[in-house]
Design a binder for these strands. Structure first.
Length: 129
RNA sequence: AAGCAAACUGGUUCUAUCGCUGUCUCAGAAAUGGGAAAGAGGAAAGUCCGGGCAACAUAGAGCGACACGCUUCCUAACGGGAAGGAUGCCUCCGGGUAGACAGAAAGUGCCACAGAAAAGAUACCGCCAGGCAACUGGUAAGGGUGAAAAUGUGAGGUAAGAGCUCACGGUAUUGUAUGGUGACAUGCAUUACGGUAAACCUCGUGUGUUGAAAAACCAAAUAGGUUGCGAGCAUUAAAGGCUGCUCGUCUUUUUUUCUUCGGAAAACUCGCAAUGGGUAGGUUGAUGGAGCUUGUGCGUGAGUGCAAGCCUAGAUAAAUGAUAGAAGUCCUUACUCAAGGAUACAGAACCCGGCUUACAAGGUUUGCUUCUUU
RNA sequence: GCCCAGCUGGCGGAAUUGGUAGACGCGUUGGUCUCAAACACCAAUAUCUUCGGAUGUGCCGGUUCGACUCCGGCGCUGGGUA
């Protein structure tokens, strides 16, 4: 399976985002806060839809926010297939996720890679239990 | 030569792997897949001004509010820019530099403390005259206070004094002559004399309001609106009461109006169909323009005319990336190889023109300081 | 994206037609009271200092004799709008 990250894999609908933050569960694996919601039925083309966010309050400059979001997106894109998609397909459910960055400063790629691995594994553990 | 400051300039490239966005193209019925070329800035920022564009409003005029304020020019326009003028400051006297640079001679307000007095002089010490004195009258030279003291100097004049008078000045008003497109400059006459308009204000000029989350179009499901059609109208039925049960009997099965008592009409409820508004969502707005590059003419200049060439981001919970390696530029150590370090500020959100602010190394120019040599 | 408001000691918060900055409260420190403490009362409390003064209202400038106050620019904080 390809390590793509297209429009269909991103969460764009305002209504779904509202219900995700309103009814979803969450946990923290520093520097990420993960909010997820299991939806049994969906007309979406992909098993998982995800939204990334970096707070404007913590990072004033658009340049810094862009940099962090790109790093998170890269780290998620590379690892999502092996860890997350297999399990979700096995359970045949649909999943909405929000990944928020709660760190106070910019961190490097290696650190974020390890942490994202941990976060996704925990997410798999949560949904399967 | 070194250091510091300011202004201008400047804003690095290639390869590999894995991705993103729209465009073109090939395959395909479609979904989709393959390929190609392209994909952040000088400030994209702050949102401080000016326009385009859109919707709404709008007979004309005035009041109010806000903004601006020397002249000529540039510009689509501007509170921006260019060239000048006057004023202040600095000066090596060549010049440089700064500013919201109309009006205090329309009116109102304010000018703390100190001081006699802060603006139509109620004069503390003083000066002069009168008086034995207390004190009364005249005065604004001198003293002192203050950020600022009634336009400055000299003479006349007087009891002492005073723009009270005169002469020469200062700043300004008005008129006029000459030069200049003009601000203005110079001369003559005239009248005036505290400051403050980034106090109210007056004069002149300009501004309709709101912003692309504006606005236009398409529009699923659900709910509701409007219109049309049909049904609800039954007693051979259903529910309930009387009763232990059955029979029997009673009540209810919408409301109003009209009625020839058969029904009819309207409302109401339900169903079906049509229809307009309109939410989620989508499309347009929205990227070919006051466009960029080069050459050339005009102009002191900001700019502008002509010709040739070019097409150069278009996202929308928001792409333009990540990782690894190499090169370039510069700095330090070394002075032959080499090693270490630095590579800024910062991310389009309808589009332009300005202003303001941020910015590593290197380069150019100017100024200041120190040292060395002649 | 668009539009507003605010910024004063350690903290909250006064002070404006421009005229001695820090009223008042909380806190802190010292003293009185007490065997000791609490409460109460009194005093001090921006920074530097050569003890004469100098600096200081987010920062940088301007207007003014004089600026927390008026004006321009920048920074930070908070709010509104969908």
């Amino acid at each position: 399976m390809k390590k793509t990250f297209k429009k269909e894999e991103r969460l764009c609908s305002k209504r779904k985002i509202d219900s995700l933050f309103h009814r979803g569960s969450s946990f923290i694996v520093y520097p990420f806060r993960v909010v997820y919601l299991i939806a049994s039925e969906s007309e979406a083309l992909t098993p998982v839809e995800v939204i990334l966010s970096v707070s404007k309050r913590r990072f004033k400059k658009a340049h810094d926010r862009n940099r962090i979001k790109r790093l998170i997106r890269e780290v998620y894109r590379v690892q999502k297939n092996e860890i997350l998609y297999e399990e979700v397909n096995k359970l045949s459910v649909h999943l909405d996720i929000a990944i928020q960055y709660v760190g106070k400063e910019e961190l490097d790629y290696e650190f974020l890679f390890v942490k994202m691995n941990k976060a996704l594994k925990q997410l798999v553990h949560e949904i399967s239990s």
